[in-house]
Design a protein around this nucleic acid. Structure first.
Lengths: 247, 247
DNA sequence: GTTAGTCTTGCGGGAACCCGCAAATTTTAC
DNA sequence: GTAAAATTTGCGGGTTCCCGCAAGACTAAC
């Protein structure tokens, strides 16, 4: 069995290496990559079926890398090992995991034991392992309570990018008013309206405020913005006519 | 000689510990803290004169911690050891370093040797050591070329927080029009105006766009926002009349 | 089908934003 | 000192944003 490690921090990389060796004696080869781009390349080169990698890397972040890897081999098993449980990451991951694929999401703060267990569960048993805290977010983001709709998340991204209502309307194929409706909906969910009990003042610019609140709540983060910016430039460049099937 | 290490990642902490032991044989005691708050407490407890710490920690980030530590003992020598060279961090640090204090700023990507040298320079020679890349940013942020004025940075923060023009005017003791002037100035420097050669469309909401561009350029980042949000709530709470001598 | 619910769209208006213009003020330079 | 440069402020208006109201459209359940 071979395992590919994708992690930019040398210390964490060697820690992971040791952990893999210890947890999986049946593993006879460990390959390391120090960023997403190298990770993709090595995954292709070695036909890697077992990968453990960080989200948040410089050259190419984990979500991007995982997406192309899974596009080429949907049965690859990937364990995400990340510092944070930002909703942006969790949403990003569960957006790209293929049907029926085995994957895991473990926080770096987890104990050695927890990591060991996750490694064995995924790579031996082909079983999904998702950290408790992450699990919580997943529930929220998907379904029932207090979660953000895809529509709401989408428009959040759009105003975070700094688009005007009109541009958003064009991009999402909506009328101007619909865009504004979604915005109001978003403002409500983010609870951006200042407590009117106060003075009439202390007012916020709702649009800008929404973005900040989302950032502070970790609904979006730097890499989500980075990706969104990239998608946007594609859309702008690509004869902004028919919506390219960006999912 | 005693040294206090403030770093939340256990791996990095123990690496630092080893590095300190190796670089400074004259050091006879190493104390560790796992976040900014604990760092402040231990610094007070041990009257620490030599500290090496991370920026970006959960409980209380490095800049906050350094500020209170330096407020109590301005001659404390602090080596900042950080992952990133965001302008937000660099600006934040150089904003709080006391007159004549010795400090350092080394990136985690630096070699063992570079770290060793920095440790000795600061704690033995009382000499400032700032990483090349960081140095570049510092120049820019301070002085001559392409840098952002304090005024510009200030208003950037304000719109990032989602304040209206009127609220900003009140907060900074300016007229409405002056605020808008500063905004235009900021838009210009951030180069937010879309290329007019294109279609008449693709237009941005300048205010929101400015914030995103600043984030992507790492002029501001999560912890800067967090601090700004905190300052804002102080100002809002504190009978938003006379500007409290913040900073 | 009908009924209720959500989503979309248009209209209209008040508020906020963006900004050119020009006068008043402060800062800087010599 | 005086001149030049940068900031601040007011006015005015074009644009965009925020949103209440109300009429279609589409879905879901019975």
């Amino acid at each position: 069995m071979e395992i590919l490690i994708v992690e930019d921090d040398p210390l964490h990389r060697s820690y992971l290496h040791d952990a893999v060796r210890a947890a999986l004696p049946e593993c006879d080869m460990v390959v390391e990559a120090e960023n997403g781009r190298a990770g993709e390349r090595l995954a292709r080169e070695y036909r890697a079926a077992h990968i453990v990698m960080d989200l948040q890397m410089n050259e190419r972040n984990g979500i991007e890398a995982a997406r192309t890897i899974w596009k080429e081999r949907p049965d690859t098993r990937i364990l995400f090992w990340s510092n944070y449980a930002d909703e942006a990451y969790v949403r990003g991951v569960s957006r790209i995991v293929p049907e029926g694929a085995a994957y895991g999401y473990v926080l770096k703060s987890a104990s050695d034991d927890r990591l060991r267990l996750a490694l064995r569960s995924i790579f031996i048993e082909a079983q999904c392992v998702i950290d408790r805290e992450v699990r919580g977010l997943q529930q929220k983001s998907m379904g029932s309570i207090k979660g953000f709709t895809d529509a709401e998340y989408e428009i959040l991204i759009d105003i975070a990018l700094g688009l005007t209502d009109r541009t958003i309307a064009r991009r999402r194929n909506l009328s101007l008013r619909s865009v504004q409706n979604r915005l109001q909906q978003l403002y409500e969910k983010l609870d951006v309206y200042q407590n009117p009990g106060d003075d009439d003042e202390g007012r916020y610019n709702l649009r800008a405020r929404a973005v900040t609140v989302a950032l502070l709540r970790k609904l979006i983060n730097y890499s989500a913005l980075e990706k969104a910016e990239h998608d946007l430039s594609l859309w702008l460049g690509g004869s902004n006519g028919p919506a390219s099937g960006e999912n």
